[in-house]
Each structure stands twice: as C-alpha cells, then as structure tokens.
Design a protein around this nucleic acid. Structure first.
Lengths: 147, 147
DNA sequence: CTCTTTGCAAAAGTTTTGCACGCTC
DNA sequence: GAGCGTGCAAAACTTTTGCAAAGAG
C-alpha cells in the first residue's frame, strides 16, 4: 500500500465515523501515516507547525485520541517511555523497534504464541484477552553508523 | 521462595551495592516484594504512609529508581498506563497481567520466541537485543466476581 | 564524623479541561 | 445554521531538582 493511499483511507475512516475533516486532522494523519519512526505528541506538533503554522498542541492530543479510538494508530511502549505513536498494522502483527532511532516496523508470524495462551488459560484459570510481543534492537541504518 | 526471604535478599543487595539501609527503603522493599499486584508510586506511597507516617512521595520515586537500577523491580506496561512496578522475576520469565485488578504473575517457557529473533536478524538486518512478551486477561478471582 | 538520604518546596514536563470563536457539513 | 473542532489559558497530574536537616555506617 502506498502512503498516499494510507492517508486517504484514514481520512475516509475519520469521516465515516462521523468526525469532521479539518486542516489540523489532515496534517496529523499525513504525518503519522507516512512516518517510519515512532512519534510523540510534541514531535508531531513540531512537524505539524511547519505546514500549519497555528496548530495547537492540544489539537494534536485530541486528534491522537480519536485516531487511537478508531484503531488507526498504536501507542508504542519503549524502554525510555511510552509517549510515542505509530501507524497501526493491518491484521495481527508485532512491532520491531530500533532503540537508537525509534524506527518501527512490523512482522508477522508469531503464531508461536497461541499455545502459550492456551496453556495459561488451562493452568492458571485466566481468561486471556490480548498479548504484546515486541522486539527491540538496532536497525541496519544505526548499525552502520555505529549506534 | 518465601516473601520474607525475598525481602531479606533485596535488603542485602541494596547494602551490597553501597546504598544505606534506611527506614523508608525497608518499607518500600517490603511492600513491593510482597505484592501480588502492580503498584504505582502513589499507591506505594499511600501504603507506606501506614507504617511510616512521614515518608515522602519523593522518597518513593528515588527508591524505585534504585530498585530498578539493581534489577529488583520492573516497570510494567499496562493498557491504561505505564506507571506501575512489580518485583522482577528470577531468570527469564514473562508477565501475565489481569486487566481488572492488575494482579501480575510470571510464566516461563516462551522459548518459542528465539527463532523469531533469529529470523528477523537474518531477514531485516536488525541486531535484536531484547523482547517483551506480555499477556493480558482476567484472573480467576476477577472472573468469579464477574469483572 | 562523613557522606548519603530524607522531606519539603518549587520547578519542569505532560496531559486534560473550560470556553469563546471559527469552520465543516 | 447547527454543532463539532480549534486555539488559548489555566488546571491537574506526574516526575525531577535544590536544599537544609537528619540519619546510617
């Protein structure tokens, strides 16, 4: 999927959910749908200001809230904090995050986890609802630069 | 391991690391080493006040910082925030957390993840350093109560 | 006795809320 | 035109820092 399509799909979904399409929302969507890195509200705000001079940080927060509610973005949990967001994947995927530059990409095929859930439900009586699998490391670009 | 032993081991480790054993530190250690639930700084403070009337919230923060540095506690990432801590496990284990009461327990045997790391290193050129696997659900006690 | 640790107060940083105006539909 | 969305200001929280006094070893 191209990123232009990704942006378009998000905007349609926002509208289909009864929310209005506004300048600030378009900007935030464009930034997040196209970023290969995790971004926190303040970084998004700084980036957005370049294209929409008067946009307020509060609007970033409120837009993030809606995008998260619509399942379009995920809050990312990193070692040094949990303030950043990233475009949600299509389908069930897991995150691989660079600890140096916060580049984030997804990977599939962690079906290995299903039996673990089943085992724990049987052995401990929990109702398992969800799981997080996230890998951390150094991306190829940062390895080249010696980070 | 009994929880008294756990508390004792932590206190010894604090002392062995060159930190002093003080009243406030003993209290925080006792609370965290014995809790089956994740606790945030404010909850720990409230609990500590019952046994040590003048203890300050700042001291809780500073003690948590040291316990984390010594590897005795982990910060827990939950759906509704990342402010809570829990006693670290012995060896490589993963967390199972109740979304209703924040009860937390560990499980072993997620060796299934190793091949995933290897695959991603080979396919994407990352140097994988760490991973998080965490399961969320409802614990038996909360299921009984219909949460 | 020395040096760490504590509690208070204040600062810094992040996120939320109230409100009048502006814009989308 | 109706009602949602925006920006500003201020509030609410969480976490960190400076400092004098107290306590551990």
């Amino acid at each position: 999927m191209t990123t232009e399509n990704q942006t378009k799909i998000w905007l349609e979904k926002i509208q289909a959910s009864g929310y209005k399409l506004t300048g600030p929302r378009r900007i935030v969507v464009e930034i997040l749908a196209n970023s290969r890195f995790t971004l926190n509200p303040s970084q998004i705000h700084a980036e957005a200001l370049r294209k929409y001079p008067n946009i307020g940080l509060v609007t970033i927060y409120r837009t993030l809230e809606k995008l998260e509610e619509l399942g379009l973005i995920w809050r990312v949990h990193e070692f040094d904090g949990c303030h950043a967001y990233v475009a949600a994947p299509t389908g069930h995927q897991h995150l691989l995050v660079c600890r140096s530059c916060s580049r984030a990409e997804y990977f599939q095929g962690a079906e290995e986890i299903e039996p673990i859930s089943g085992r724990l439900e049987a052995e401990r009586g929990y109702l398992i609802q969800d799981h997080w699998l996230q890998l951390f490391g150094i991306c190829p670009e940062c390895r080249k630069e010696g980070n």
